[in-house]
């Protein structure tokens, strides 16, 4: 039984999202993900707690952040700014002080009302496009109480809902969310357990079970497969995914092209980036 939560950690919003379900949508990115996908293009959504991204190429070395930081995470040494991540408490004060836009707080606690207010602003566009709100991440089901409350609140506002999920959660959570989700955007990243572990650090047994459960329960499902060079762009894997999908009820399946736009985010977050090699095969696929 999910205990509903009035607040949660939100990484970001994306308005005019036209590839995250039907119509024009506002995608709400919730923080935290159980997988460690080698290609992840939202690394700021992996950790469960707020964290600060520092885009050093934008830094003007003005020292404004030093003035407002309560924990000494920012210093100016020899005229240059240094960020001491280990001291940062992610309070966000420096983000507002940074005029150059070099500091960005990834994740902040927000209430249901605050999130729905942002989402409802674009209601006029949902109405002309059959769009709505998409919860994404990270993995929204890692914040099940907040996710359930958000979905209910959106439905109460008459807003169409979509849940972008990696499939790695419990069947019970899906059971409780199901009545409030109009469309599941369901990731199938690999067909074999070993392949999935190699791609994401986690097996896919439960992911496939949950897909069958949602399909049997009559959920509206759109499959999304990021096509990643060297990991899942071989013919055998793609045919395997095709065979799997022939046995479940889905509205459509999409191949998502891999891109490397997120590399600067890894640097800004102090995370190691392990981009896949480029692959002529992917382009052919």
């Amino acid at each position: 039984m999910i205990t509903e939560k009035a607040t949660g950690i939100v990484t970001d919003f994306k308005r005019f999202a036209v590839h995250d379900g039907d119509g024009i949508r506002t995608t709400v990115f919730l923080k935290g993900c159980p997988l460690k996908c080698v290609w992840c293009h939202n690394p700021e959504s992996i950790g469960r707690t707020p964290e600060l991204a520092f885009y050093r190429e934008k830094c003007a070395h003005c020292g404004e952040c030093v003035k407002v930081c309560p924990s000494g995470a920012h210093t100016i040494e020899d005229g240059r700014h240094r960020f001491h991540r280990e001291k940062c408490t992610a309070c966000g004060k420096c983000e507002n002080a940074c005029l150059a836009g070099a500091l960005k707080l990834c994740g902040r606690e927000m209430s249901i009302a605050e999130v729905i207010k942002v989402v409802a602003e674009d209601k006029m566009f949902y109405e002309t496009s059959n769009g709505g709100m998409t919860l994404s991440g990270g993995e929204p089901t890692l914040q099940p109480g907040f996710t359930l409350s958000l979905l209910k609140a959106a439905k109460a506002e008459g807003i169409n809902t979509a849940l972008d999920t990696c499939g790695l959660t419990t069947r019970e959570i899906y059971e409780e969310l199901l009545p409030f989700v109009d469309t599941f955007l369901y990731d199938i990243k690999h067909i074999t357990d070993g392949g999935h572990i190699r791609c994401t650090g986690h097996g896919n047994e439960r992911i496939l079970e949950n897909l069958r459960f949602l399909s049997d329960a009559g959920a509206r499902i759109e499959i999304r497969t990021p096509l990643v060079p060297g990991f899942n762009d071989d013919s055998e894997t793609l045919h395997g995914i095709g065979r799997l999908l022939s046995g479940v009820n889905i509205t459509r399946a999409k191949l998502l092209p891999y891109h490397s736009y997120a590399s600067s985010k890894y640097d800004a977050l102090g995370m190691e980036n392990t981009p896949p090699p480029s692959s002529a095969r992917t382009r052919r696929t």
Binding site: F16, V18, H19, I24, F125, T128, S129
Partner: peptide, 22 residues
């Protein structure tokens, strides 16, 4: 990239419709 494919065309159509309706 926001206007690519069928989804992109539908989104442009929806923008026009929303602007008109508003």
């Amino acid at each position: 990239t926001a206007v690519q494919g069928d989804d992109g065309l539908a989104a442009m159509r929806a923008l026009l419709a929303a602007y008109d309706a508003g």
